[in-house]
Amino acid sequence: MTISTPLGELHGLPVFDFPGPDSRVALPDAASVAWRLSAPTYSEPDDEPWEPLFDRFLRTVDAGRVRALVVGGWDEAYENSSAPIVAALIGANDRLTALEAVFLGDMTFEDCEISWIQQSDVTPLLAAYPRLLEFGVRGGSELAFPSIHHAGLRSLVVESGGLGAGVVRGIAGSDLPALENLDLWLGSDEYGGDSTVADLEPLLAGTAFPSLRHLGLRNSHIQDEIAAAVANAPVVARLDRLDLSMGTLTDEGGAALLAGGPLTHLAYLGLSHHYLSKEMRERIIDALTPHGVTVDVDDAQQPDENGGVVYRYVAVAE
């Protein structure tokens, strides 16, 4: 699976692509859309780079009423860090005074493969916008997220083909008292996903994020280990939604979930893109759906075998 379409919505607002300088397209009300600002990643000499595009956006739109921003591509994102983008956004915090949501790196595979996107330390951006409610970032390469405090953030999404252990520890160790939704794509060790269950311990223990209701630990090459850890994790008791999809979950992880603490209070359990047998899928469905839990076990995968070695793959890696 690859990411083939850009975001269509952010913060409950439809995404609108800010047009080029010669466009005659009528612009919507500044507060009515999530503005997508994107420059070509494989740029030509006449293309407008991201930073001049952003300057033109601030001059054109009523910046004080902008509620959501989607940063798409930037010049040669497969080589160039997002640090100048982060700095530009921070420098505009006195103008983007109504900003409540940011997604950084909304690129499809045609723009830049997820594992090629060169990110940076994104936490100064959160510090610069204390009113921010939602933050998302795509790409784990060079991504940094040292532990921070943010009083208002409600949703944090990190999409990667491989998320470094330092990033996972930084997020799990952060003080985010309002956080309701956390979605981490942990990825493959072949693309930098070297985190372990131990790195998630503050999160699983329930000592972090007292408002958390929706938890995604997805796209992981150690999905069975995560399922076993989650099965008896104190944090699960207060969740409404648990998403362990997109990874290499097998019957071992499915059995651990069934043998662990109750899951019948959940509204949703996501397990799609998995390696569960038909029998295990039926056991999970039979155990939970009578209690009103929506269980997603779609997209069953078959492992590859070569020379007696079995290979299982996460949904999104490269």
Score class of each variant (00 low, 15 high):
S23M: 08
L126Q: 14
W185G: 04
E225A: 15
Y313T: 11
A101H: 03
Y313I: 00
L182R: 08
P19N: 05
V293P: 03
V236W: 02
D47G: 12
F54D: 03
A30Q: 06
F135E: 08
L244V: 10
Y268K: 06
H149V: 07
A229S: 09
S4K: 13
T264W: 05
L125H: 13
G8M: 05
T264Q: 14
W74D: 03
P40Q: 03
A208T: 11
V70M: 03
P40C: 04
M280C: 10
P84W: 01
D189F: 03
C112K: 04
E48K: 01
L203H: 10
A237L: 03
E51Q: 12
A98Q: 06
V235I: 15
Q223P: 02
D46S: 13
R241S: 09
V309Y: 09
R218A: 08
T123S: 10
P6D: 02
N93M: 01
D194K: 11
Y268I: 01
L133Q: 14
E201W: 06
Y268S: 11
F103K: 01
V230S: 04
G193F: 05
G187K: 07
R131K: 14
D17W: 00
S160K: 06
P177N: 07
L215H: 13
G254V: 10
I222E: 08
E225L: 08
L99Q: 10
E159T: 11
L271P: 04
D111Q: 13
V70Q: 06
L200K: 12
T264A: 15
I222A: 03
G162K: 12
V295M: 03
A259L: 05
G270L: 08
A208M: 10
A178D: 08
S188T: 14
